[in-house]
Design a binder for these strands. Structure first.
Lengths: 231, 231
DNA sequence: GCCGACTGACTGACTGTTCAGTCTATGGAG
DNA sequence: CTCCATAGACTGAACAGTCAGTCAGTCGGC
């Protein structure tokens, strides 16, 4: 089918061209959307002919889902790298929030926000993509749980159910990232940060940080003018 | 451009045919995805010719974004109808969770889950869709806030910032619905319900319901075997 | 006869994929 | 070193299928 697989003889000198295409495809998916991405576009962006793209990936679908996988992987790697260089629960959690809810880190790893929407849409309808996404989700949760578990054993925070926290917090971050990605005027990057950290502080018994102080200080503590729920 | 607009002379006998097409389009978007939906498919489903669909909507894009709007509206109406018939904060919040995180209510309003993914993806790239989505989000938040505000005035719950809660809870529900829609093995509908309600109980000072009891009774309260955050 | 709903047949543009063949590098034989 | 063969990267041009949108015209009610 495809010209060559990913199998390399020795040295792991993985094909540069292939990666270029994967990166270009991921960028284009982010910009235009999954199904609005043409092989001709990818080809042009890497300075090659459409035929060469097919030569490498055999089929358009293979290219695009490959790009999705590639992005997931890059995100995961970036997470672990960050964690290796960051001590302290609070700092680590902060970094994780930044990694997911950063507004427009286009050159950064997490910044490919539109890509998640397409990943979800694709996973919803194609079992193979769904399997990949699930795998990523598992790793993501266990990354969060790992941070918490580390903090528990080092007595930074009291005993809590790390896995339980990870599941809820991951879900919360997903929701926040949607709003940030869609440029919601109320939930911007800063507000997202506050919400995520305040939740973490409360759930993990962390000392209150600037997030909690900012909110309770700035906001009036009562419901303003919201309409009745019964219209 | 289009054959006729939505403007009707009298009686509000809104075009049945038009609605049929909108419904069919929404269904198809859910099943296949936004850009995999063909006018021919919509036409076939309502038993008409593709030309007629164009006759009504003028353009494919008009049809599909119309279908998105239509679904948003139906969801909103269903929410308010439910609230009108449901007394009590707890029950109301429960219903809201059900409305968003129901696993497969295909004949139900909220059940069109794949549709949200496409709505987000579309909103991310097309300002007009983004405006609609934002409007829906606002109404959704103010619905939640309304439920809370009602409960505060009726002394069901202590004084809280209803708007603040609404924002966070809405975000949490978004995240949960993703997992439920994608059939995550860990976050199924039941678990989503537990997480949402437990958060609400804690944030609003509600008495603990079965959700909180179930979790703390079933789960071991310590981190199990999750890997270290530093791999 | 008019008008609006409706259609079948068509088209023009787009685009994934194929294919025959070019160009370059490598390496072994002479 | 030169020559040829082989392989692999790469391309231009064509092919084939798909689909949104057009149009001329039909049909039925008023």
């Amino acid at each position: 089918m495809a010209g060559r697989g990913a199998e390399q003889s020795a040295g792991e000198i993985v094909d540069q061209r292939r990666d270029q295409m994967l990166v270009a495809a991921a960028e284009l998916i982010t910009e235009r959307g999954f199904s609005e991405t043409r092989i001709a576009d990818v080809a042009r962006r890497v300075g090659a002919s459409p035929a060469l793209v097919i030569y490498y990936f055999g089929t358009k679908d293979e290219l695009l889902t490959g790009a999705l996988r590639y992005s997931e992987e890059k995100f995961y790697v970036a997470c672990n790298e960050m964690l290796a260089n960051t001590p302290g629960v609070r700092e680590r959690l902060e970094q994780l929030v930044r990694l997911t809810c950063v507004p427009d880190g286009n050159d950064q790893v997490g910044g490919a926000w539109g890509l998640w929407f397409d990943l979800w849409a694709q996973a919803f309808r194609h079992p193979l993509v769904a399997k990949d996404r699930l795998e990523l989700e598992k790793r993501w949760r266990s990354t969060i749980a790992g941070v918490v578990a580390d903090a528990v054993t080092s007595k930074e925070i009291p005993q809590v159910d790390a896995d339980d926290f990870a599941v809820t917090w991951a879900v919360l971050l997903d929701g926040l990232s949607i709003q940030v990605a869609l440029a919601d005027p109320i939930v911007d990057a800063e507000r997202a940060y506050d919400i995520a950290m305040r939740f973490a502080e409360q759930a993990l018994g962390l000392p209150m940080g600037r997030a909690a102080r900012r909110r309770s200080g700035t906001r009036k503590p009562t419901a303003k003018k919201s309409r009745s729920g019964r219209p």
